[in-house]
Simulated assay, not measured.
Amino acid sequence: MNRIEKRMQELQQRGEKALITYITAGLPDMEGTKKLIRAQEEAGVDVVELGIPFSDPVADGPVIQDASYRSILKGTTLRKVLAMVKELRAEGCEQPLIFMMYYNTVMSYGVQNFADACVEIGIDGLIIPDLPMEEQGELKEALAGREETVIIPLVSPVSGDRIPKLVGDAKGFVYCVSSMGVTGNGGQFHAHVAEYLKQVKAVSPIPVMMGFGIRTAADVLPVKDVIDGAIVGSHFIQLMEESGYDTEKAKEYIRTFKTELNA
């Protein structure tokens, strides 16, 4: 059982919903990323998605695209992010961490080398939007027999008959995309999002999270009884940028969201 699975089990035992946030690695700088992760851990966030900047982030909207671009200009690389996470773990950080990234970066680093590095430094999960289930074989083989790092499945409103296959042997949690298109749609959810989430929940052996376009806990109230938690990305990045990456603002947002989500 890795950190994500342990946290989800603890939440279920307490009858609570999870909050997952997304930040772009390397912003405001590498040390600032470490401080922001620590602040979120202190505030009680359940999982942090750490975005690995990429030149063509096809699943992301303008906010995350811009953040990725600015991080690249600062010299952020996968190798540097791996080193930063290794430092965090050595300093005692037990926050569940996920890499959200694109497969070109994995291939460039070397699939087996990447898998080994993730397990070694304590990356608990991987979200790779451009790696469909049918093409995950090499990465799954590289991670075979090691439960420390799991591949998080992405499910969309048009997944339909593929949903049971996508979640059948999945680990960690299921990432349910709430709308078609890219991240940061600002609450413009799919017209039949509740029915779709119920369809996923009915067949998923693991917790179901809703992401894309979420800003406040109020955004997920209509489906609160269906999902096991919410994922906030673009809005959280905007909040950090507007506040100059104020860690107290991050803590305040997380604590408020968690309180309202579990009211």
Rank of each mutant, 00 (worst) to 15 (best):
E41Y: 15
G44A: 04
G44S: 14
V47Q: 13
V47I: 14
V48E: 13
E49L: 02
E49W: 11
L50F: 09
L50V: 14
G51Q: 15
I52P: 09
F54W: 07
F54S: 06
S55V: 09
D56H: 06
P57Q: 05
V58C: 14
A59Q: 09
D60T: 00
P62M: 11
I64Y: 01
Q65P: 00
Q65M: 12
D66I: 07
A67T: 09
S68L: 07
S68Y: 07
Y69C: 01
S71N: 01
I72W: 01
L73R: 03
K74C: 05
T76G: 03
T76R: 09
R79G: 02
K80H: 12
K80T: 04
V81Y: 11
A83K: 14
M84C: 13
M84N: 05
K86F: 06
K86G: 08
K86S: 15
L88R: 06
L88M: 15
A90E: 13
A90P: 10
G92E: 01
C93H: 00
E94C: 07
Q95V: 00
L97G: 06
L97A: 04
I98F: 05
F99L: 11
M101G: 11
Y102F: 02
V106A: 07
Y109K: 07
G110I: 02
V111E: 05
V111L: 03
V111R: 01
Q112R: 15
Q112D: 08
F114N: 06
D116M: 04
A117W: 00
A117C: 03
C118E: 01
C118Q: 10
V119S: 09
